[in-house]
Design a protein around this nucleic acid. Sequence first.
DNA 1: TTTTGTGAAGTTTTTCACAGCG
DNA 2: CGCTGTGAAAAACTTCACAAAA
Lengths: 210, 210
Amino acid sequence: MKIAEATVARLVMYHRLLCRLNDEGQRVVSSNEIGEILGVKASQVRKDLSYFGEIGKRGVGYHVGRLYDHLEEILSTPGKWKMALVGVGHLGSALLGYKAFDTAKYGIEVLFDKDPQKIGSEMYGIPCYNIEEARIVTKEHGIQIIILAVPPGVAQECIDTVLQDTGVKGILNFSPTSIIVPDNVLVYNVDISVELEKLLFYLKQTMINI
Amino acid sequence: MKIAEATVARLVMYHRLLCRLNDEGQRVVSSNEIGEILGVKASQVRKDLSYFGEIGKRGVGYHVGRLYDHLEEILSTPGKWKMALVGVGHLGSALLGYKAFDTAKYGIEVLFDKDPQKIGSEMYGIPCYNIEEARIVTKEHGIQIIILAVPPGVAQECIDTVLQDTGVKGILNFSPTSIIVPDNVLVYNVDISVELEKLLFYLKQTMINI
DNA sequence: TTTTGTGAAGTTTTTCACAGCG
DNA sequence: CGCTGTGAAAAACTTCACAAAA
């Protein structure tokens, strides 16, 4: 069955919340409580969780540890994903220092940049290569996922080389531009200014309407 | 009329594309061409643009400069929004260096952190204050938007203080946690690990199905 | 002829409401 | 009795298909 993207996003948030509740020693939680904390309707929480079988107890709620394990399993991966960070500028460096990008499920194995100062060095113990060598290095390291954090003008060419006859399957694109890829490659965009513009658009609306 | 969030996101992308086409000297563009570049159906492009009146020419397409101005107007703001960046760590610093966060429409006016090294200093010419003083400084500067880039454990308390009797209307939340706010405050979340987890979830699915 | 603008149809996602079970 | 699980209804969003205009 196909699970909707919005559902997966919420599953990740449930997982994170359950981890916290577990640490806090809470044993049981209701769909209503989860919903209140995360700003989601209780019925939505139940529907999301129901796609993966009956896990709650009627009249009681969900056992925190058990639901956590269940979500952990749903979000588990077959082995550790190998990622490459392309572009170690402001944003790239921040992502590199971001603890959430180094877990048992995935990790950044190589860096690419065009700055001679960075090429050949290591950051956080991860080697940085010349972006010109991206295709060959990506292939040799068995990289499956690209984290793209380059200026918009060069995003497409970076992607074109790095997809050429390598095993890359997915891209997390932080460059403020859309990229065109073959349809066997999955792309998710994290576009900061789009999010800011959305916020401003609706803020303007509410200011006018009041 | 209410414009859907997904529509606003696409408008921002159209705006960006039109800017580029304009720079490249292209005079006319069709919904089909826009769609192909951005990975959106042509009918979707036309529907999105139609919410704001007839702007294209049948049989011809859209005049690039005119459509750009039209989008500029749709996405315009009443004056310049004043923003505060809360949390100048790895990610916060990257956001601060991000050119897209300083335009005629909005700019970061103050920084907050708890690091004594940073408090009292300036970064990119923007003063950094003690996060303890966030409420009063936010109020004095007339800050309307908060960019939140603090660790998840302190996100809620930061927001609670900064919303207390200040003029803050919107939050762009980069902290990997959900926050609870009064419903006259708009929140948009940019959650990097949620995006990565979504990518991994569907990658796993396609690997199993092939 | 080409390409827009748009009702209508189709699809997806969310919410409701209640049966079912502990 | 309380809370889950889930069909059915509602809402939201996308795509189709074609009339209308350049």
